[in-house]
Design a binder for these strands. Structure first.
Lengths: 208, 208
DNA sequence: GTGAGTGATGTCAGAGTCTGACATCACTGA
DNA sequence: TCAGTGATGTCAGACTCTGACATCACTCAC
């Protein structure tokens, strides 16, 4: 064993989230978080750029993973929306690895504008990654953006529902059923395959 | 004339934006902004909740106006996307009333994550307002969301392009041509009217 | 006209965020 | 054994934001 307890970063992140859930993010000081983790305030800032940083999960590798999942889905013949939705399922699996943390995140973040804004920034990174992965797989840029935005909408709705109602079951299940609902609704207004109708004469093959 | 120069709020907002554009938002202190406006730091916080607040335009009335515009467009027979795009045009007209301010905003905000997050929060409010206006006009919820998100995407692209290239002309024109591009692209993948194709048998009438 | 509000601003103190500079000290490897 | 190394502590200070109280031109009864 070293000179200090290991995993100071993990203890700080956990303390930040638990204290923020208990008494509110704004009412929780960095000094308190540091004390709860058994370090000084200065050490907190060696692990996190700012207070908000301790609330958000580390995204290292996530975007790369999502891109890979989307690319695989397109290669497997899925249409853009379905491919984008596989990324959301992957996101759900990531979150499910730490359900308690995800639950606290969903409780703390929407209540604080500064954190909500940061979450939107994170979601935008995800949407951009998914959109670019689709584009690189041959999906036209606008279709790619639309699919990514739609998939992200599914994510927002699913997480909100899951966080609101503990009875809903696993996050991955809520995401799956939300995705199904989105698919069945968009299928009514979006083409799935080329037809002979003059209205859709320019439509491209779905798998392209 | 009163005891103090009138329009302290306006002077503060302008000083905040100009100084942030000159030397960077983070490097600009509230004390400097206040001094440039001829008031004290304390007075700054009587007009703005925080430093970032001075950078963003006042949205009072905007959301109401956008909702009205969207409702009118639907009543006039436009499809959901076109109706949502009228809101974006309205947004462009609002911004065009203060082109210099809009230009500085587009320069300062994306460069600072905290401001970018806040801008996304503002855009989400706009998207929600547009989406709800569409819903209240009879557009199915998911279609309404899709139209609102798409329209907002047009806004983001148009503003970025306008800010990047001063040659592009008026913001309203850039928005108009971007909207046209979006329309022509989405028309290829989205139904505009019912057909007899079995693929679209469930499609609802466009004006509903 | 005069005195009691009123409202925008100033002054002051202090908590909290974040950063730079330097000190400490268990551990590691030559 | 002794000079790094690296994670942490200590200290000072700039900056953000807030509460409490003071100031003072202006206004409105009386």
């Amino acid at each position: 064993m070293g000179r200090w307890e290991p995993n100071a970063r993990g203890r700080l992140a956990r303390a930040a989230l638990v204290l923020s859930a208990e008494k509110g993010y704004d009412a929780t000081t960095v000094a308190e978080i540091a004390a709860a983790a058994g370090v000084t305030e200065r050490t907190f800032y060696r692990y996190f750029a700012d207070k908000a940083d301790a609330i958000f999960p580390d995204n290292t590798g996530l975007l790369v993973r999502l891109s890979a999942v989307v690319t695989d889905a397109v290669d497997a013949g899925h249409n853009p929306l379905d491919a984008a939705l596989t990324a959301v399922q992957e996101l759900a699996m990531y979150a499910s690895q730490e359900p308690e943390r995800t639950r606290l995140n969903a409780q703390v973040i929407p209540a604080v504008p500064a954190l909500a804004g940061r979450e939107l920034l994170r979601q935008r990174q995800i949407a951009d990654a998914v959109s670019q992965a689709l584009s690189h797989s041959g999906v036209p840029a606008l279709d790619a953006q639309l699919a990514a935005e739609t998939a992200l909408g599914v994510w927002r709705v699913a997480v909100a529902e899951w966080a609101r109602d503990a009875q809903k079951g696993a996050l991955t299940d809520v995401v799956a059923s939300t995705a199904d609902a989105a698919r069945s609704q968009t299928s009514r207004v979006r083409l799935r395959s080329p037809t002979t109708s003059s209205d859709v004469a320019e439509a491209r093959p779905a798998g392209q």
